[in-house]
Amino acid sequence: MFDKNKKRIIARLDVKAPNLIKSINLEGLRKLGSPAKFAEKYYKEGVDEIIYMDVVASLYQRNGLGDIVKLTTENVFIPITVGGGIRTAEDVENMLRCGADKVAINTAAVSRPDLISELANVYGSQCIVISIEAKQTASGEWEAYTDNGREKTGLDVVEWAKRAASLGAGEVLLTSVDREGTRKGFDIELTRKVSDAVNIPVIASGGMGSVKDMIDLFGAANPEAIAIADMLHYERLTVQDIRRSALDSGIPVRKI
C-alpha cells in the first residue's frame, strides 16, 4: 500500500475591492476587512492555498484584485489563485505579474471556450482553473451560471466540466450556488458527479458548516481539495482544527 495523495484545504476569499466580503448564495453582503490580512492569518495557520474571487469584476468588466495580490505576496508564501473578470491573456499576464500562480475563469470561458486552450497553451494547464458556479435544476442535474449565480448559461455542469478539462483546464473550482454561505454542508452529489467525470483535480466550494461536512464530502466524493470561506472568516473553525479533524478521520492532508 502507499500513502494516498494529499487533499488540500483552501481558504476562499470573496472580494469586493478593497474588502473581503461575506456572501450567501454568492450575493455579496457584508465587509469584513483587508483580504491580505486575512490571507496572511490563514497562511500562518497553515492553509494550503488561497483563492481570491472578485465578486463584482464581471459586472464592471474589471478586476480590482491586482493590488491586493501584490500586497498578499509580500508575506504569504503559498499558492494564490485569482478569479473574477479574467478575460484575456493580458489579464492573466497581469495577475501573474502581481504574484498570482493560477487564474480562475468562468464568464469568458463560457462565452468562448477556446480561450481555455489558448491560455493553457501559453501558461500551462496548471495555471488555468475553470470556475463553475452550479445551481441545481432537477434531481441529479445542475446548470452552470456566471456572474455570481445571476446569469444562466444553459450548460450542464458535468458536461461543461468535461469539455473544459478536454480543452486544457488544469483544475475545476466547483461552487455550489445553492449551498454557498448557507453552512448546510457541501453538495456531495454534485461534487461526486463532477470529480468522477474529469481527470483533473476538483476543488469543492460552498456550504461547509462543520468538520463533519468535510468528512462526509471526502467519504462520499473524490475532490482533491475543499475551499472554505466564512467558517474561517468568522473564526468558527481554525485551519488547525480542520486539519486535525481531517487527519483524525483518516483524510490524507498535509502534516505540518
Binding site: 487533499k7 483544475e171 482533491e224
Partner: peptide, 19 residues
Amino acid sequence: PEESADGTSHRVPHVTWQE
C-alpha cells in the same frame, strides 16, 4: 503517469503538497 501504483487512474496535473 496517469496511473497510480495500484493501476487505478489518477489526476494530472499533479497538484498538491507532497512529502
